[in-house]
């Protein structure tokens, strides 16, 4: 339903333990561009990130909304012409509500997220090293709890892969441009009513 055939062929060979060669190089290059952009956006900075949560500095919202409009338009166009696959996470209402809440609580404390953490480190903000150690420890903690979570939280509201256009019974060709327009209007409002 979500994919008109596998547009990009995946190899059937098991992946190597350490990614090497051209694929690894490309991943490092993609990451370098991503990190460069995030740093230039200022979103690897504690005050900018907390400023967003305190609704004082809207840099993070502006970066994300623009990335979403541009990314969505391109990715759905690529997908329409069978040049890209979509990769949706299954909707598990309980897991995403509880996970989102827990993540948000941690966010207000550490400020750096898993993506902007390495940005902060590259910038020289060393407090992030303790945050990243925490991230790895948190992953251990999850692994310890995973059996229990699988039986409980992850079964609550398991809907499989769901997309907004399907939910609203709208064709993607209608939903995507309409939605892009709404997000662009939102960006204009943000720019108009905020100082940062």
């Amino acid at each position: 339903m979500t994919d008109p055939g596998q547009a990009v062929k995946e190899s059937s060979a098991p992946p190597p333990a350490v990614l090497a060669g051209r694929k690894a190089l490309m991943a490092v290059i993609f990451g370098t561009v991503f990190g460069f952009l995030l740093q230039k956006g200022g979103v690897g900075k504690y005050n900018v990130l907390l400023g967003q949560l305190l609704l004082q500095d809207f840099t993070v919202a502006k970066v994300m909304l623009t990335a979403i409009v541009v990314g969505m338009s391109g990715v759905f166009t690529l997908h329409h012409f069978a040049k890209a696959n979509l990769h949706l996470q299954p909707t598990k209402i309980g897991a995403q509500i509880i996970g989102g809440t827990v993540f948000g609580i941690g966010f207000a404390l550490i400020a750096y997220c898993p993506g902007t953490g390495p940005v902060a480190l590259g910038q020289g903000s060393w407090d992030v090293l303790f945050g990243m150690a925490g991230l790895i420890a948190g992953s251990h903690l999850f692994a310890e709890m995973s059996g229990w979570l699988k039986r409980t939280v992850e079964t609550w509201g398991d809907q499989g892969k769901v997309m907004l256009p399907d939910l609203l019974h709208l064709p993607r060709g209608v939903f995507v441009p309409l939605f892009a327009l709404i997000l662009i209007i939102g960006l204009f409002l943000l720019e108009h009513f905020t100082h940062h």
Partner: peptide
């Protein structure tokens, strides 16, 4: 604070199967 925040954040990310990115 950063360590504790990191633990809580990643626990949430793993439960929800994804993060800010």
């Amino acid at each position: 604070g950063a360590f504790l925040g990191g633990v809580i954040m990643m626990l949430g990310a793993r439960i929800a199967q994804g993060c800010t990115s």
